[in-house]
């Protein structure tokens, strides 16, 4: 599998503030790559360095196996991006905005292609409307349309669901999934919505305090973690007691009247069910999940210690 992005030992200082200390990650062709980190971790700075908006003080950025320093224009022709929020010329229509960026593309882009892309993001009917009248969700979709104009090999989406209502988040998630499945794009996705990244990404990096904490396959990283189990029984106090005494699980919590929640290794779940049945505890429902959120918090906390 070819490497689309390779970032190594990236450093950047703004005045006395060291925004990036040592960021390293690799994105392979076809990846949906989660780019995670708490606020101020350096995600946006790293992405801006990757797109040539910010000049790194030190480190190497290679895209499509070429150095960004020596072949920036050629590389940018193969990338579509939304950084932070999609800002457009508010006094122009959606179509006029896309035409501006189409004229900057490496290859000619026809009006028909622009209409097809607007149709793909569900804005064809509104193409003549000025962007200043667009909702945040519509601007996000126009942003995604803009990233698709030149049929890029790599799409960089920085917080594409920020500020969206639940329906908007679902719409953008579906769009990203379609980009992956229908168009086979390599996507770098930075988001605070860890659930989104968990659902979409196959690989990820977590950065904190300007350096890489961990990088790898989402499934592999999460498999090493305890599962979060939600269990509904006909006798929750007894089940809770059993989990604490027989299995030494200290993390048992009563989530609500009907459900208890705890963390445990995946292999132990069948045994827990068996013991509960032996103790005449009726089990209505068991749901186990490896949550990226837990993993993320654990990684960040480990960093802080």
């Amino acid at each position: 599998m070819s490497t689309v992005v390779s970032v190594s030992h990236l450093q950047k200082k703004f005045g006395s503030f060291q925004a990036l200390r040592d960021v390293n990650f690799q994105v392979h062709a076809g990846d949906v790559f989660g780019f995670l980190g708490p606020n101020g971790a350096g995600k946006s700075t790293a992405m801006r360095c990757m797109l040539g908006l910010i000049h790194a003080d030190h480190g190497d950025i290679r895209l499509f196996e070429q150095s960004l320093t020596t072949n920036k224009v050629g590389i940018l022709g193969r990338i579509g991006n939304i950084i932070e929020k999609p800002d457009f010329y508010k006094y122009l229509s959606a179509e006029a905005n896309l035409k501006i960026f189409a004229r900057m593309a490496s290859q000619p882009i026809t009006t028909t292609t622009i209409h097809e892309i607007l149709d793909f993001v569900g804005l064809l009917e509104r193409r003549r409307d000025k962007v200043k009248g667009f909702s945040h969700g519509m601007r996000q979709r126009l942003g995604i349309a803009q990233t698709l104009l030149a049929d890029p090999d790599l799409i960089v989406l920085d917080e594409p669901t920020t500020g969206l209502d639940p329906q908007g988040i679902i719409d953008v998630r579906k769009l990203i999934l379609r980009l992956k499945e229908e168009k086979g794009k390599t996507i770098i996705l930075s988001s605070h919505q860890l659930q989104e990244v968990e659902m979409i990404a196959n690989r990820m990096v977590i950065i904190n305090h300007g350096h890489t904490v961990i990088e790898g396959e989402v499934a592999t990283l999460l498999n090493a973690q305890d599962c979060t189990v939600k269990m509904s029984t006909d006798n929750n106090p007894k089940a809770q007691d059993l989990l604490q005494t027989r299995f030494a699980i200290s993390s048992v919590q009563q989530e609500n009247q009907d459900i208890i929640q705890f963390s445990v290794k995946k292999e132990k779940i069948p045994m827990i069910i068996e013991v509960c049945v032996q103790e005449s505890i009726g089990i209505f429902e068991v749901e186990s999940k490896k949550q990226l959120e837990n993993y993320f918090i654990q990684m960040i906390q480990n960093e802080s210690i």
Partner: peptide
């Protein structure tokens, strides 16, 4: 100020 400069500069143009 509008935020379009970063979009402009991430296109294949020096």
């Amino acid at each position: 100020a509008m935020g379009t400069l970063r979009l402009l500069l991430t296109h294949p143009i020096s």
